[in-house]
């Protein structure tokens, strides 16, 4: 039986909501005459629980009804080809955020912009000068606006690259 994404999401949400609801009992009671920190989240969680349960049940029932009916599922290669750009950008952004405090704004930004264009743009070395020009142009523009005009203290980094 093929399981729909909604069935899995519904089940995960039910567990997640139940966990958060249990966590609200660890919160201190209401001080003074306020309704306390737990009541509003509990109201939301109580409203969310049946909705998530309904999502799970509705989707699971459809899974069960369709049973072994054959459905077209993309191969891993097709799936990867469709999502490789997205995965690459998430990975590069993750590395950018991780490197920012120690490599600094300019260095981490330079690598993010260059690598993002290399990952998404046309392949081959012909476009590299263009990527370089775009990277330097954007970095210079944003540095000027945020550091020079708006006086934002952009991360300088620990290794002195800025």
């Amino acid at each position: 039986m093929h399981v729909r994404a909604d069935t899995v999401i519904g089940a995960l949400l039910v567990v997640f909501i139940a966990t958060l609801f249990a966590m609200t009992f660890d919160l201190p009671p209401a001080p003074y005459e306020t309704m306390g920190p737990a009541l509003f989240p509990r109201i939301l969680l109580v409203a969310l629980f049946p909705m998530c349960l309904a999502l799970f049940v509705k989707s699971a029932v459809r899974d069960f009804r369709e049973g072994q009916a054959k459905r077209e599922i993309a191969s891993f290669a097709e799936w990867f080809d469709n999502y490789r750009n997205v995965l690459a950008i998430y990975l590069l952004f993750f590395m950018f955020a991780w490197a920012l405090p120690w490599a600094g704004y300019l260095a981490s930004g330079f690598f993010f912009l260059m690598l993002a264009q290399l990952a998404l743009g046309p392949k081959g070395w012909v476009k590299v000068p263009q990527f370089l020009a775009v990277t330097i142009g954007i970095l210079a523009l944003l540095y000027f606006i945020f550091r020079v005009v708006l006086l934002v203290l952009l991360p300088e980094g620990e290794i002195g690259l800025m």
């Binding site: 704004y105 993002a116 998404l120 954007i138 944003l142 934002v152 991360p155």
Partner: peptide
């Protein structure tokens, strides 16, 4: 799109950082 996406994303990151440093 590859220029727009990478530069806009980098700009978004700079913008949110500038809010609270």
């Amino acid at each position: 799109k590859y220029i727009l996406a990478s530069s806009v994303l980098f700009f978004c990151a700079t913008g949110v950082f500038a809010l609270h440093n």
